[in-house]
Simulated assay, not measured.
Amino acid sequence: MGRGGWLTLLGFVLLALNLRAAIAAVPPLLPDLQVDLGLDRSAAGLLTALPVLCFGLLSPFAALLGRRVGIEWALLAAMLGIVLGSLTRTLPHPGWLLVGTALVGAGITVGNVLVPSAVKQHFPGRPGLATGLSTASMTTGATVAAAVSAPLAYAMGWGWRGSLLAIGAFAGVAALGWLPQVRRRHTAPAVEPQRSGAGILRSPVTWQVAVFMGTQSMLYYAILTWLPSILRDQGVAPTRAGAALAVFNLLGIGTALVVPTLAVRRPDQRGLALVVCAGWAVGVLGLLALPTMYLLWTVVAGLAQGAALSLTLTLLVVRARTPASARQLSGAVQSIGYLLSATGPVLFGALRDATTGWDLPLAAMAVVTVLMA
Rank of each mutant, 00 (worst) to 15 (best):
R195H: 13
N112Y: 06
V69H: 01
G199T: 12
I200Q: 03
S117L: 01
H186K: 15
A263V: 13
V264Q: 03
C54E: 11
A118F: 03
M365C: 14
S325L: 06
T343R: 05
W73K: 15
G214N: 00
I82W: 04
V115R: 02
L9T: 02
L371D: 04
R126I: 09
G271K: 09
I200M: 11
A155F: 09
A142C: 06
L362S: 06
L351N: 13
G105F: 04
S335I: 10
L329I: 00
Y221G: 08
G141K: 04
A246N: 05
T312M: 13
L9R: 02
A222K: 02
A169I: 10
P60V: 06
L53Q: 00
L288Q: 14
L46R: 10
G159P: 02
A171I: 07
V69P: 00
L7F: 14
L33D: 12
G302D: 03
L303D: 03
A153C: 03
I200H: 05
Q305P: 00
V83Y: 00
L152A: 00
Y338K: 00
A44N: 13
A25H: 08
G141N: 06
L251W: 05
G172H: 09
P28Q: 02
G81T: 14
L47H: 10
L98Q: 11
L84I: 15
D268C: 07
L14E: 01
L29G: 11
A78W: 03
W178T: 07
G2V: 02
W358K: 04
M213Y: 08
Y154K: 13
A281Q: 05
A136Y: 04
W297F: 08
T292C: 09
P124S: 02
T48E: 01
L76V: 12
I223N: 10
F212H: 06
A198E: 07
R68P: 12
L9E: 10
S330N: 01
L285F: 14
R202T: 06
S325Q: 14
L362G: 03
N249D: 09
R266E: 13
A74D: 01
G141W: 06
G105C: 04
G283E: 12
P127I: 01
F55T: 06
I223P: 02
H122M: 12
I23G: 12
V367W: 10
T322D: 01
V182W: 07
S137H: 05
A281N: 01
M365I: 13
G235P: 02
V276H: 00
S229C: 04
F212K: 10
T356E: 14
L14P: 11
A171E: 07
L309K: 05
L10W: 13
L329Q: 08
I23L: 15
L76S: 11
L316M: 12
Y221A: 03
A171G: 04
P260N: 09
V258D: 04
F61P: 10
V182Q: 08
V264D: 01
P260R: 10
V368C: 07
A16F: 09
T355G: 09
A74Q: 06
I336G: 03
L84N: 05
T355D: 11
A155Y: 11
L309Q: 07
A106T: 12
L329F: 01
G95D: 08
G141A: 04
P361D: 09
L37H: 15
A354T: 08
G337L: 00
W297I: 02
T239A: 15
P51E: 02
I253L: 13
G331Q: 09
